[in-house]
C-alpha cells in the first residue's frame, strides 16, 4: 500500500485548470521529486495535497485513507500526518525559533511540553541552529529560516514531508546548507515529495523523478532515466536546457 496515493487529480484556479489528471503513488520511505517549468502545477499539487486548494476531481489517499477535503475532520486527520515546508519559509514572525518549532505540537496537538521541547532542541541542533533558539525569524538569514522551517515540520512527526521549492528564495551561497539538511532526512528514510529546481540535488537524492508540464505528469521514472535517457522530447528539451544552462553558468 502506497503511503501517498494520488488518482486522477484535477484542480482549478478560478477558471484555469492547473492540475489536469495527476496519478502518482509514493511508497513509504520513498523520495519523489517533481520537476518542470514554472506554472506546470508542481507547487499547486503540494497545495492541493495539503488542503490549501480544493481539488475538483480525483482522490488523494494517505496510508490508505482517502482524504475528504470537504470534511473538516478528515482534512484535520490528514494534516496531522503530513507537513509542508514552503518556499518563503513562513515562520511565524511573532515567535522565536524554539516557539516556532514547539507551538503546533504543544498547543495544537496537546503533547507534553517538556517532551516536545527536548525534541525541538535536538532537531534544531541537528539542522545546525542549536545556538539560535531565542532568535526571531527576522534576525536570521534565509537559509537559517528555512532550516528552522524544516525542523518545525519534522517536529510534527509527519508520515510524509512536502518540500515546496525550499531553496528558491535563498541566496546561492545558502542553498547548500538547506540541501544538506534534506539529505539528512533522506538518509533516515523519511517519505519525501520534493518540488525543486536544483537538478543535481534532485538527481542525487530522489528514488523517482516526475516531469510535469501543463498540469500533468509527462514522464515518471528513475533519475537516471529522466536525466540521461528521457523517453519524450519535452522532458529532453527541459532537462537539457536546464542542465546546459547550469554548465554554461
Amino acid at each position: 500500500m502506497a503511503q501517498l496515493d494520488i488518482r486522477g487529480l484535477v484542480a482549478r484556479y478560478n477558471d484555469t485548470t492547473v492540475l489536469d489528471g495527476i496519478d502518482l503513488a509514493i511508497d513509504r520511505g520513498e523520495i519523489v521529486s517533481l520537476i518542470g517549468p514554472s506554472g506546470s502545477g508542481k507547487s499547486t499539487l503540494l497545495r492541493v495535497i495539503s488542503g490549501l486548494l480544493r481539488p475538483v476531481k480525483g482522490t488523494v489517499s494517505l496510508a490508505g485513507e482517502t482524504i475528504d477535503y470537504g470534511d473538516r475532520r478528515s482534512l484535520r486527520r490528514a494534516r496531522n500526518r503530513l507537513a509542508i515546508v514552503f518556499q518563503q519559509y513562513n515562520l511565524f514572525g511573532n515567535m522565536n525559533v524554539l516557539r516556532n518549532v514547539m507551538v503546533t505540537p504543544v498547543t495544537i496537538k496537546k503533547r507534553d511540553r517538556r517532551e516536545v521541547e527536548a525534541e525541538a532542541r535536538t532537531l534544531l541542533e541537528k539542522v545546525g541552529l542549536g545556538d539560535k533558539l531565542n532568535a526571531y525569524p527576522d534576525e536570521l538569514s534565509g537559509g537559517q529560516q528555512q532550516r528552522v522551517a524544516i525542523a518545525r515540520a519534522l517536529c510534527l512527526k509527519p508520515e510524509i514531508l512536502l518540500l515546496d521549492e525550499v531553496t528558491s528564495a535563498l541566496d546561492p551561497e545558502r542553498v547548500g546548507e538547506v540541501l544538506d539538511t534534506i539529505k539528512l532526512l533522506a538518509a533516515e528514510h523519511m517519505t519525501l515529495l520534493i518540488v525543486s529546481h536544483e537538478m543535481a540535488f534532485v538527481r542525487d537524492v530522489s528514488h523517482r523523478v516526475a516531469f510535469m508540464a501543463e498540469g500533468t505528469i509527462q514522464e515518471l521514472g528513475t533519475p537516471e532515466q529522466i536525466f540521461d535517457a528521457p523517453r519524450i522530447a519535452r522532458t529532453r528539451t527541459f532537462v537539457s536546457r536546464i542542465l546546459g544552462h547550469r554548465t554554461a553558468a
Partner: peptide, 25 residues
C-alpha cells in the same frame, strides 16, 4: 496570508491562528 496558510496546514483552528499568529503580528 502565507502566515495564516502555514497555521492552517498545521491544523490551527480559525481562532487559534487569529490569537496565536494574526493578532500578535
Amino acid at each position: 496570508a502565507s502566515q495564516i496558510e502555514a497555521a492552517e496546514v498545521m491544523n490551527f483552528s480559525v481562532w487559534q491562528s487569529f490569537w496565536l499568529v494574526r493578532l500578535p503580528q
